[in-house]
Design a binder for these strands. Structure first.
Lengths: 219, 219
DNA sequence: TTGACAACATACTCGATAGTATGTTCAAGT
DNA sequence: ACTTGAACATACTATCGAGTATGTTGTCAA
């Protein structure tokens, strides 16, 4: 009986990146639910049916795990959005496509995006231990670069006379508040298929683009 | 020399409410900067040049202090917005006025509003000790009532054909994301007078109302 | 004037958690 | 077969912070 189903106590994970991704997913969910500092690593470990030892084998500290989740979240955004930026189409269409890609990405990787948000205002308020602070600044650079992509599309569409805004900083901030909204208010329902999620995303995009003074039709 | 400027070690505060308000302001700033659980009460005390003893004299626990800040933040919102709701004017004008009042209130009481936000998603994710959880639910009711005010104005303006939306939940969420935006991205500049702040608020309102399909002029 | 109490300050306790040190298992190379 | 090291698990330490217990100061009522 004691020799029934064994050999899973130490499930060696041949691929290190896979193990780290599993840890990150658990961490993202915990960070999202309780915030960075309220989350204990024992909690994260429990979520993936593991122990703190495993986490510290892959990460030097809690902060590094957090930063890796942040980085991964940003990467997901870039991968969703950058291909579209290279397409050759009118600025307004590119804007619509980019907004939708972002919203869909946000909905699908909600926990990670929430962590990104936490990271952003950890930097803003200058919390986080000094040693990791440098890395956090670097990641903030990633975020700025991402934001810059959107700014350019806005300016192009403005030049085409398709949209209109006054202060671009406030406009951009408002757009981001809108399309990041699902991070805060979206809760997945069971039996919710891809169509429904797309409908939600479409509506977010509609509001975001209307906000910019766009009065044309939406596909 | 030891008897120079004395008698300020125990600055008796004749009015209890004043003392509590001073504590709340310090707490709001700390909670905003580092989040609820990362904030220590020693930190809050230090911010108002006081000690933990004073805080525990007025509050039974850290959670109760948090909840009082939450409640106070919501009260500030109600006081800013409710007078306008009773005015007799077209729905679209009332909508504009209410949005602006909210944004101005948010900018002026930024730290408190940030705490409100934290409270909202503490409830959403079911964190916070069980005993205070009941009070948190009650406060969430306040928030719902506040949101309800806005929903009604939206519906009135929609009935008048001034605005247009599809799913009112998503529309309302998007509007709130917009007009609460300053909680996240606004940073007060020195030498920034009332006019500049009003200009920022006006722009937020413009985007929020455009989002709802409004194409008319803004005052 | 005194004593009782509100409004604090100071000095402790005790549990939770980040981080560490050490033990265990397995797979691959030799 | 056996040795080595990566990938964990377990057991421990050290710190920080919420909550408490107690001390101190000023004020007002009788």
């Amino acid at each position: 009986m004691a020799t029934a189903a064994r050999s899973t106590k130490y499930r060696r994970q041949s691929d290190t990146d896979l193990s780290r991704m599993e840890i990150m997913e658990g961490a993202a969910l915990c960070f999202e639910a309780r915030g960075y500092s309220a989350t204990s690593l024992d909690e994260v470990a429990a979520r993936i049916s593991s122990t703190k030892g495993r986490i510290y084998h892959h990460y030097a500290s809690k902060a590094e795990l957090f930063l890796d989740v942040y980085r991964t979240g940003m990467m997901m955004n870039f991968e969703a959005v950058e291909p579209i930026l290279e397409l050759d189409m009118p600025a307004i269409d590119r804007l619509k496509a980019v907004l939708k890609a972002h919203v869909l990405c946000v909905i699908r990787t909600k926990a990670f995006q929430n962590v990104v948000g936490q990271g952003v205002d950890m930097l803003r308020h200058g919390t986080m231990p000094a040693n990791e602070h440098a890395e956090l600044r670097q990641l903030a650079g990633l975020r700025d670069a991402y934001s810059e992509h959107f700014r350019k599309v806005l300016e192009d569409a403005m030049a085409d006379g398709e949209i209109e805004y006054n202060n671009i900083k406030i406009a951009l901030n408002s757009v981001f508040m809108c399309i990041n909204g699902p991070i805060v208010w979206f809760t997945p329902r069971k039996g919710q298929d891809e169509k429904e999620i797309e409908a939600i995303a479409d509506e977010c995009v509609l509001y975001a683009i209307r906000l910019l003074g766009y009065t044309g039709k939406m596909p």
